[in-house]
Simulated scan of single mutants.
Amino acid sequence: MSTEPKTLAMKFSICSTGLKGMILKEVLEAANRLQLDGVELWDGHITEYLDGGGTTHDLRRLLSEQRLSVPAISTYTSFSQNEAAELQQVQRAARWAKELGCPRIRTFAGHLSSREAPPSLWDSVVSGLSAASAACEQDGVRLVIEMHNNTLADTTDDIAELLNRVGPELELIFDGFNFFVDHQDPLPALDRFYRRIPHVHFKNYQWNHQDWAQSVPVPVLQGDSDHRAILRNLAELEYDGFLSFEYFGDRVLELTQLSLIEVTQELSGGGDDRP
């Protein structure tokens, strides 16, 4: 039996949405110190950098110096409240993505859960996502909606409806924790939509279902959501994309570092034997 360590196919990044108090250069330096492969960039970080006199050429050089790539640019668009302005935001992010060699733009599907949303909201979201997806294609990038509670992409059937109505060019970001908070098993969604999932978010909490504000973020394999099962499923599927750690609060870098250690040990066969 070979004793050679397993090669990790997945790549690892951090969501800069959780580091809004840091300037972009500091975020990139921190990601490099953590030995990550990339940074999922919040579009606000890019805006601040460019407003401060930087260029996308400068940013691409900084990324190269820190040996980092950008698997996604994250916007907070949802196409349910101000479709025209949000389309412009995605178009701008798509131009940046093209210049930075980033393959996709993150968005959300509405601001209400699928069970609460009226047909008019569905129509607005589908129209906005279709226009935004077409705009991204013009710059050679893809639009990805995050699977998220309190949006139209919060159940497997409603995600399927979105994909059917928008078209085959739309992709998904899988976030198992966002199913957990809605008391749903995330694995069926991963299995059902795997071919449309180029990117994954990872976070975990000791979760208080009665008072979400009292929940405590913890390393990804120590929380109430069974992320070990998700990770093993991704490994079995031979997922080789980015797994992006998404934490918020004052322990983002610490939790990312601890989570990276746990995940790499688990994938290398060094995790414990818990089911």
Results as ranks from 00 to 15, higher is better:
residue 94 A to V: 07
residue 106 R to M: 12
residue 69 S to Q: 15
residue 97 A to F: 10
residue 77 T to E: 04
residue 108 F to Q: 04
residue 147 M to W: 03
residue 135 A to C: 07
residue 133 S to W: 04
residue 122 W to P: 08
residue 144 V to Q: 10
residue 136 C to A: 09
residue 152 L to Q: 03
residue 97 A to W: 11
residue 86 E to W: 02
residue 127 S to F: 01
residue 116 E to P: 00
residue 113 S to F: 06
residue 109 A to H: 05
residue 119 P to I: 13
residue 130 S to L: 09
residue 79 F to S: 04
residue 153 A to V: 08
residue 110 G to V: 08
residue 116 E to V: 06
residue 107 T to W: 01
residue 147 M to G: 07
residue 145 I to T: 07
residue 137 E to G: 09
residue 128 G to A: 09
residue 100 L to Y: 06
residue 153 A to F: 03
residue 134 A to R: 14
residue 92 R to P: 00
residue 112 L to G: 00
residue 86 E to Y: 02
residue 104 R to K: 15
residue 139 D to F: 10
residue 100 L to S: 08
residue 127 S to K: 15
residue 86 E to R: 02
residue 72 A to P: 00
residue 138 Q to M: 01
residue 72 A to R: 11
residue 84 A to H: 12
residue 90 V to Y: 02
residue 121 L to N: 12
residue 83 E to I: 15
residue 141 V to W: 11
residue 75 T to I: 04
residue 103 P to W: 09
residue 111 H to G: 06
residue 95 R to M: 11
residue 85 A to P: 00
residue 69 S to H: 10
residue 89 Q to S: 13
residue 115 R to K: 13
residue 69 S to M: 10
residue 134 A to V: 09
residue 126 V to P: 10
residue 97 A to S: 10
residue 122 W to N: 08
residue 86 E to N: 01
residue 123 D to T: 14
